[in-house]
Amino acid sequence: MSRKNRACPCGTGEPYAECCGRLHRGEATAATAEQLMRSRFSAFAVADEEYLLRTWHPDTRPPSIEFDPGQRWTSLEILGRTGGGLLHREGTVEFVARYRIGGQDGEMRENSRFLRDGEQWLYLTALGTR
């Protein structure tokens, strides 16, 4: 099955092309901080460096992103959020991102901070990871 028809890695159950794929292709922007978080998880899953850098706040954006070819992002679970809605200028999203690497399962927990710049949400920083 092509990536276009597969379920989106972000976990909504929608086809990738109609979910995060639209954001990755620049056809739409994330309406909320959570939607941006989900689309960034999907960008890591499909190794879309351009999208990740485009949606990273310039104050904290790295020059490039190194992907581990042996790592496969497997699921995303949103644990909570503050702000980040249609009428907000900032917000946080706490999540667990699960992956598989070298035959072992792992997870990354993070509480991410997002800021809205005009009509676009941007990832600013992690408030905490484990």
Rank of each mutant, 00 (worst) to 15 (best):
Y16A: 05
G91I: 03
K4A: 14
Q35A: 02
Y16P: 08
G106P: 00
A43P: 04
G103S: 01
Y99E: 00
L87C: 13
H24W: 15
W73V: 10
S2M: 15
E34N: 09
V46F: 09
F41S: 00
G70W: 11
M37T: 01
A7P: 13
A28F: 11
E90F: 06
E90N: 11
S64V: 01
R54I: 14
L87Y: 15
M108S: 11
T32C: 12
S64G: 10
L36V: 04
E14C: 02
A43E: 03
R72Q: 10
R3G: 06
L87K: 15
S64Y: 10
Q35D: 01
R25M: 11
E107C: 02
F67L: 09
A30Y: 07
P69T: 12
P69M: 14
G128Y: 02
G128I: 03
E107T: 11
C19Q: 07
V96W: 00
D117H: 02
G103R: 04
G21P: 06
R38F: 05
T74H: 12
E18Y: 08
E119T: 14
L53E: 00
Y123C: 01
S42Q: 08
G102W: 05
G21H: 06
Q104A: 07
L79I: 10
W73Y: 07
A7Q: 10
M1E: 09
D117E: 05
H57G: 04
G80I: 06
G118D: 02
Q71W: 09
I78L: 11
E18S: 13
A97F: 00
D48S: 08
A31V: 13
R72G: 04
R38P: 08
M108T: 08
T60W: 00
I78M: 13
S2W: 11
L86F: 14
T92Q: 03
R61W: 08
E50W: 09
W56P: 14
T82E: 03
G128R: 05
T60N: 01
R89S: 08
T60Q: 01
T125Q: 01
T60H: 00
M1T: 14
D68N: 13
A33D: 05
R116M: 03
G83A: 08
R113C: 04
E66W: 10
S39V: 04
E66T: 07
R109V: 15
N111D: 14
I65E: 01
H24M: 12
Q104E: 05
R116S: 04
N111M: 10
A126I: 01
L23K: 15
A45W: 10
G26Y: 10
